[in-house]
Write a protein that binds this DNA or RNA. Structure first.
Ligand SMILES: [Mn+2]
Ligand SMILES: [Mn+2]
Ligand SMILES: [Zn+2]
Ligand SMILES: [Zn+2]
Lengths: 139, 139
DNA sequence: ACGCTAGTGCAAGTCTCTTGCAAATAACAT
DNA sequence: ATGTTATTTGCAAGAGACTTGCACTAGCGT
């Protein structure tokens, strides 16, 4: 893990604890966004002693610092978290059968924002875009 | 309410009960998608005696029949439901301050689907797209 | 090494949504 | 109209994700 993350934490009055470092390491290694429970399971299986509530509190803290992205995949009923470091803004597709989640390295919505602002008089902040379907193995 | 809805229900072996009709009437009248709790509150305030669990069960049944759309707005932590009858596929924007939800009568994703299928080898089923921002009054 | 304060674990609580079951009622046959 | 049957309902309890309270622990600046 980069030391810059530790510095970022310090600058915000936060500490780089053993458990927080473990959370960041697992998030950095993951190829897809993790739920709190999945993260907890990976940590526990990796012999990191941590409570689920600590996972939640760390995810919340890291989200507030802008170090992780919180997302909600279509009708999963839970949040997932992805580290931001070194990853562009992107979206996801999830298999309806096996649950596999794959990055879509594109965002078709930049042009659309101006149109929406014009039509609704809203100022657009964020957007969430997720696809679901059937992955190659489950078709 | 249209009698066609009653016929549709019958054709699926379902019944048009007093409570189910009341649910449909409130959904038809709403200008924005309602959560189960909001629907329950509107019914109760309108002197319809109904249990919250019955609201949930009716929403589930109507969703399975394709008569309502279930959607999840960004980070609300609850589902919302919209009647399909007479409404095209569309998306929403929600104000981060007051929670107002407005229809976006467009979908920019039809063209994108072919590209995603080509790149990921998934077969694309559904998508969910929601915006959030600041409405005219809350800016 | 010391002290302050952020962070942690455990327990309990909140909120949305689901399930089990007996009673009520809509649909339909007689 | 009356009876039969399967659907629907209400009440109670349960599931699952996430949050909060509080005493104890441990980073880290000095
Ligand atoms: Mn991703
Ligand atoms: Mn709508
Ligand atoms: Zn985007
Ligand atoms: Zn669309």
């Amino acid at each position: 893990m980069k030391t810059s993350l530790t510095d970022e934490l310090r600058a915000a009055g936060k500490r780089m604890t053993r458990t927080r470092k473990a959370v960041l390491v697992v998030l950095e290694a993951s190829q897809f966004p993790l739920s709190a429970t999945e993260l907890y399971t990976q940590l526990t299986n990796g012999n990191v002693a941590i409570d689920l509530v600590t996972v939640y509190r760390n995810l919340t803290a890291l989200k507030e610092l802008g170090m992780v992205t919180q997302l909600e995949l279509h009708q999963e009923g839970q949040f997932r978290y992805e580290i931001k470091e070194g990853r562009e803004h992107h979206h996801h597709i999830r298999c309806k059968i096996c649950g596999r989640i794959v990055d879509l390295l594109l965002c078709p919505l930049k042009k659309l924002t101006a149109l929406i602002e014009q039509e609704t008089r809203f100022v657009v902040g964020d957007h969430s875009l997720e696809f679901s379907g059937w992955c190659p193995k489950c078709q």
